[in-house]
Design a protein around this nucleic acid. Structure first.
Lengths: 208, 208
DNA sequence: TGTACATCAGTGAACGCGCGTTCACTGATGTAC
DNA sequence: TGTACATCAGTGAACGCGCGTTCACTGATGTAC
């Protein structure tokens, strides 16, 4: 089978993924700028020098984590924003989707929220790029809605940016509530829904 | 003069402030969780051990920085949100005020944006508390507006939270634009104003 | 298929360095009389 | 005002420790014939 990776390549990928997983775990209670290369390799059980076979530095590993955390999320945008249903249905679906995502990948969400304004420039830049792509995709999806008639491209991008920022705020609020009670999480969901509804109302009355 | 500090107390305060200033400077390109005690004392020009006369740890210093960065901002809220003028005037004033604040205290703003979701729990907690106080104050100011008639306390707090979050997003966007051109900053101001106007429109049509 | 050589992911010792924290100290400032 | 003692912000040496990076290496996997 010429399409399968060789044993060597497969093992290398496995170690690389183990490094990424270990780093993500260690980043639950510290920032990337204080994450040590030896910490990561120790957690995986390989020699410190093995790290260099996969990443130049922890900053480099951080950029890879951004790709892992956000890269796979793009298809989700399309499904959430552009699918059918009225505003309230769309909001309910979006909030539910965010809540589920935070429950499934809490460490990824924490990493992005933390490093978005964190101390490692290349990682900030990578996150900024991904979020700009999200905003662009949301803009395109919004343009498909009938209620976007008469909206300029610039105004749609402004609205898309507001949505993206707010989704991140919501994800971060859900994350804080993860260690709380069911009631805490429901309150976050409720407040987030109302905030999104308010933005949606603003949208429908914009220029009108 | 019994009300002036003794020479000893005055000198101690001065050293403490020098430590805070130096730390804030060093935090421009790293996170608090990687800030070293020796780095800070070296920047000030005192012995490493002098640090312990003022703070238990860098986390402790971080909490003091939160107080310095956000504590003095509370009076500003009242002025911004509750003062006279229609929505557009209020928005213009708020955006201008945020832009000026970021220009005057960029390091403080960066610190708050960075450590809000950073790796140091007590500092996150301190920021969370201050922002909750802001939201409460904004809520009280909003309640004074005539357009808040019929609004429940809960809805006002929801709106206040949206404003506080959005002000922070705006501050962070201005910060990124600080190293850019005048045009960059104007674009941020323009987008922020329109987003606030959209929220304001949502507010006026809420339940209506 | 078997053999001889190339590749390269992971090893382990070694390095110089800066870290946080301890401790007993110094000497200017504060206080009691 | 002057003196004798107490306080305490800042010192400087010392400690053990883990860090990032270098280097020559090993041995399983890959490849050419």
């Amino acid at each position: 089978m010429s399409h399968t990776l060789g044993i060597r390549q497969a093992q290398k990928q496995k170690t690389r993924q183990a490094l990424l997983d270990a780093a993500l775990g260690l980043l639950e209670d510290q920032s990337l700028s204080s994450l040590g290369l030896r910490e990561v390799t120790r957690a995986v059980g390989v020699a410190p020098t093995a790290f260099y076979r996969h990443f130049r530095s922890t900053a480099d590993l951080g950029v890879a984590l951004v790709e892992e955390a956000l890269g796979s999320l793009h298809p989700m945008i399309e499904d959430t924003v552009s699918a059918a249903g009225d505003s309230d249905e769309r909001i309910a679906r979006a909030v539910d989707l965010i809540a589920r995502h935070v429950e499934t990948y809490p460490a990824h969400v924490r990493f992005i929220a933390r490093e978005r304004h964190g101390g490692v420039q290349p990682v900030r830049e990578a996150i900024r790029e991904q979020l700009a792509r999200f905003a662009e995709e949301v803009k395109l999806a919004l343009a498909e809605h009938p209620e976007s008639k008469g909206w300029s491209d610039d105004d749609l991008l402004m609205l898309a940016g507001l949505y993206v920022d707010h989704m991140l705020m919501a994800a971060s609020a859900f994350l804080e509530a993860l260690e709380g009670s069911d009631q805490d999480r429901q309150r976050v969901a409720c407040v987030t829904s109302r905030q999104m509804r308010l933005i949606s109302i603003g949208r429908h009355n914009w220029l009108g």
